Computed example of a mutant assay.
Amino acid sequence: MGLDITAYSKLVLAPDAELDEDGYPVDYDNHETFYENPDFPGRIEGITPKAVYKIEGHCSGLSSGYGSYSAWRDQLAKLAGYPVGQYEQYGRIAESHCVACWGGAKGPFAEQINFSDCDGTIGPVVSAKLANDYAEFAGRAEQIGGHFWEKYQEWKAAFDCAADGGAVLFH
Rank of each mutant, 00 (worst) to 15 (best):
V12P: 07
V12F: 12
V12A: 14
V12W: 01
V12S: 12
L13A: 10
L13D: 05
L13K: 13
A14W: 02
A14H: 01
P15A: 06
D16Q: 02
A17D: 02
A17Y: 05
E18D: 14
E18W: 13
D20A: 08
E21C: 01
E21V: 02
D22W: 14
D22I: 09
G23S: 06
G23Y: 08
G23R: 14
G23N: 03
G23H: 10
Y24C: 04
P25Y: 02
D27Y: 09
D27C: 12
D27R: 11
D27S: 09
Y28Q: 05
Y28T: 14
D29W: 15
N30C: 01
H31R: 13
H31Y: 03
H31L: 03
H31V: 00
H31E: 11
E32L: 15
E32A: 11
E32Y: 14
T33Y: 11
T33V: 12
Y35Q: 00
E36H: 13
E36N: 05
E36M: 09
N37M: 07
P38A: 06
P38H: 11
D39F: 06
D39V: 15
F40G: 02
G42E: 09
G42W: 13
R43D: 08
I44W: 11
I44F: 13
E45N: 03
G46F: 01
I47E: 00
I47N: 05
I47G: 01
I47D: 08
I47L: 03
P49A: 10
P49I: 09
K50C: 03
A51L: 14
V52N: 03
V52Y: 03
V52A: 08
V52E: 03
Y53V: 05
Y53L: 11
K54T: 10
K54Y: 11
I55V: 15
I55C: 01
I55N: 03
I55F: 09
E56C: 09
E56V: 13
G57M: 02
G57C: 11
H58P: 00
H58D: 15
H58V: 00
C59D: 14
C59K: 10
C59T: 10
G61Q: 08
G61S: 07
L62R: 13
S63K: 07
S64R: 00
S64A: 15
G65M: 09
Y66C: 01
G67W: 10
G67Y: 08
G67F: 14
G67R: 10
G67K: 04
S68M: 14
S68A: 14
S68C: 06
S68W: 07
S68V: 11
Y69Q: 04
Y69T: 05
Y69W: 13
A71M: 04
A71N: 00
W72L: 06
W72M: 07
R73V: 07
L76G: 01
A77W: 09
K78Q: 15
K78I: 01
L79Q: 10
L79I: 08
A80F: 01
G81Q: 07
G81I: 06
G81Y: 12
G81V: 06
Y82L: 07
P83W: 00
P83G: 12
V84P: 00
G85P: 05
G85R: 03
Q86W: 06
Q86T: 07
Q86E: 10
Y87F: 14
Y87R: 08
Y87P: 00
E88M: 06
E88I: 04
E88S: 08
Q89V: 00
Y90N: 13
G91Q: 04
R92Q: 10
R92Y: 07
I93M: 12
I93F: 00
